[in-house]
Amino acid sequence: MSEPKESRHAATDRDKCQEMADKYGWELLRVEPTDNDILQVDCVFEGETQFPNYHEESEDD
């Protein structure tokens, strides 16, 4: 059986990770500090996750 994959996205704070899970329907497994001054957290999600195409998103707005 193949291991389930994870994917990761940088964010400025932990609440952004939860917002991503809410907005895109992802499962947030973990929020880690990165020691990066600006992108301070790593949001770890179950499975492969990618942001929707930004061009399409701006057209919807």
Binding site: K5, E6, S7, R8, H9, A10, A11, T12, T34, D37, I38, L39, D42, V44, Q50, F51, Y54
Partner: peptide, 17 residues
């Protein structure tokens, strides 16, 4: 683990800072 993805807007903000 896979690399940490950084979206375009955050990448720009990081470069500016």
């Amino acid at each position: 683990l896979p690399r940490i993805q950084v979206n375009q807007e955050l990448r720009k903000a990081e470069v500016v800072q």
